[in-house]
Write a protein that binds this DNA or RNA. Structure first.
Length: 515
DNA sequence: TTCCGACAGTGGGGTCGCAAT
DNA sequence: ATTGCGACCCCACTATCGGAA
């Protein structure tokens, strides 16, 4: 199949907002590709490259060569070029990657170049990625979408499922079962504004500690142990402590879900930054381990010996977990039975949240005790509750938006008042803004404009915004040495002047309170 | 008819490893 | 030794479609 065929379909998918139409277009293309080309077509149209890390990003692709006049590239040509790129390493790698990328782009037409650049920078913006591609695959093969989705969740990837389905038909999906040694997509949590809201939504539930670390899925088969992240990266080699804990469990096979954290000398949880640094270290694991030893803390189990538990209710899965894993390697929890739901249960759950925060953790996750493990879904069955802080900050500048925000000032630079009354930048945010707010802030900020370099508009201090955030973290980027974690705009404060905005000192205190 | 679950889009800061400077 | 880049970790929120209620 020619790349141009796929690029045309991507354009058509982007041009319609109807999801059912997108699904039809994808299905037609997958059928046309045939078993030979469909895996590549599906990978590219779901915004992925099979090679994974290829070391090519925006910077490498900045200056594209003149486009080809006529399309000639096939999907296999692209695949071969990406194989070549992925294999480049060592001295001169940057230049060699640039050369190879330019050769590929030079063989592509203008439209093909745009698609390839988007694909390689993770910005295939056609309003249909992984989940829509799975829908398209289901439509193309005449198999219920639910079965395709489940197979993808259990295999952890779409392309192998597509290959099997197109070659072997619906019956081939039976092979995709929970398999020890092969990770499934983890179940994710939705949010709730308060414990009360979560309890009302869920009935019989467990309120569990939410730990601020790295999500891990651990598989053990005999002496063989593997550890994966949320996106199913294999990090077994980096976390020997986790392997040791798994090997010591009194079973021969199991699949566990949990979080890796670290404690300081006083037994308080260390910051996310420290844990992430440790988990990311792979060159000298022994040294990293000595500095920041980690501990796995599990909250779910998907398989024990021959018992597959994905579809078992959470209450049953937790009984299995408690029988398998020592208390110090399990999250603390507070159980609310439906029969006991009421003021007492709410008070108990809220007290548990307060204790959890007091121990230095992030918040709680409230989980429906009757729910199965919905691999890969941001299930309504799990709801996280975290405290939110807010401050009033001054807009110092704003960046022009991209995509659907083109022509609107979007990303706000936020400042607090310093000791001398000067404004100190603390970070940026583009979150929480409705279309109406985007339109209004664009107009107001342009009135306050001091300069515009085409990317960033600097403004006179005038606009004050109420910003919500989860906490304060150390920063090497901003002058005060700190920045807000997950900042988002709640509302404008037209009633406040920049002189009435919060101070850096107040931000620091909010951070201390949050920790 | 209205409501709500699921998706995609729009990006944020920190950290590590690698190659270039 | 420092810097730039890519890739990954954590993530919040809004708009929209289309099926459920």
């Amino acid at each position: 199949m020619l790349l141009v065929t796929l690029v045309d379909v991507s354009g058509a998918v982007a041009a319609t907002r109807s999801r059912s139409r997108k699904t039809e277009l994808l299905a037609e293309l997958f059928l046309a590709a045939g078993p030979e080309d469909a895996p590549l077509a599906i990978a590219y149209l779901s915004g992925r490259v099979p090679q994974g890390r290829i070391g090519v990003g925006w910077s490498t692709l900045r200056e594209a060569p003149a486009p080809a006049a006529a399309p000639s590239l096939s999907l296999h040509d692209v695949d071969a070029a990406l194989d070549g790129l992925a294999a480049v390493a060592g001295k001169g790698a940057q230049a060699e990657r640039k050369r190879r990328a330019a050769a590929l782009l030079g063989a592509a037409t203008e439209a093909e170049q745009r698609f390839l650049v988007g694909l390689l920078t993770g910005e295939v913006r056609q309003g249909a990625l992984d989940a829509m591609a799975a829908e398209g695959l289901a439509a193309a093969s005449g198999v219920p979408a639910e079965e395709v989705r489940r197979a993808v969740m259990l295999r952890g990837a779409l392309v192998p499922v597509a290959r099997a389905l197109l070659a072997g038909g619906r019956a081939a999906l039976g092979a995709f079962r929970l398999t020890v040694g092969r990770p499934v997509r983890p179940m994710l949590a939705g949010t709730a504004a308060s414990v009360a809201e979560a309890l009302t939504a869920l009935g019989s539930c467990a309120v569990e500690e939410k730990l601020d670390g790295i999500r891990v899925q651990v598989h053990r088969d005999g002496e063989r142990v593997s550890v994966w992240t949320r996106t199913l990266e294999d990090i077994t080699e980096r976390l020997p402590e986790v392997v040791e804990v798994a090997r010591a469990l009194p079973v021969s096979r199991c699949v566990l879900d949990g979080e890796v954290i670290a404690y300081d000398g006083a037994g308080r949880p260390r910051s996310f930054q420290e844990i992430a640094g440790r988990t990311g270290s792979r060159t000298d694991v022994a040294k990293a381990r000595a500095l920041v030893p980690v501990v796995p803390v599990f909250f779910d189990v998907l398989l024990v010996d021959e018992r597959e538990l994905l579809d078992a209710p959470f209450a049953r899965r937790h009984r299995e977990l408690a029988g398998l894993v020592a208390e110090e390697n399990r999250v603390r929890r507070y159980v609310v039975e439906e029969s006991g739901a009421g003021a007492d249960a709410l008070a108990g759950a809220e007290a548990f949240l307060a204790e959890t925060l007091g121990r230095g953790h992030e918040g709680v996750v409230v989980k429906d005790l009757g729910s199965p493990y919905s691999a890969g879904r941001r299930g309504a069955a799990w709801r996280k509750v975290k405290p939110v802080h807010t401050l009033d900050l001054v807009v110092l500048a704003a960046e022009w938006g991209h995509g659907r925000r083109t022509g609107k000032l979007s990303n706000l630079h936020l400042g607090a008042r310093g000791a001398e009354g000067e404004l100190v930048m603390l970070g940026k945010t583009f979150k929480g803004l409705t279309d109406a707010m985007l339109a209004e802030q664009t107009e107001r900020l342009l009135e306050l404009s001091l300069s515009d370099d085409g990317r960033t508009v600097r403004v006179r201090p005038g606009l004050v915004v109420e910003v919500a955030f989860d906490g304060v973290q150390r920063s090497s980027r901003y002058p005060a040495g700190l920045t807000l974690r997950f900042a988002r705009v709640v509302r404008y404060r037209p009633d406040k002047t920049p002189e009435e905005a919060d101070t850096v000192e107040a931000v620091r205190e909010a951070g201390a309170g949050a920790a």
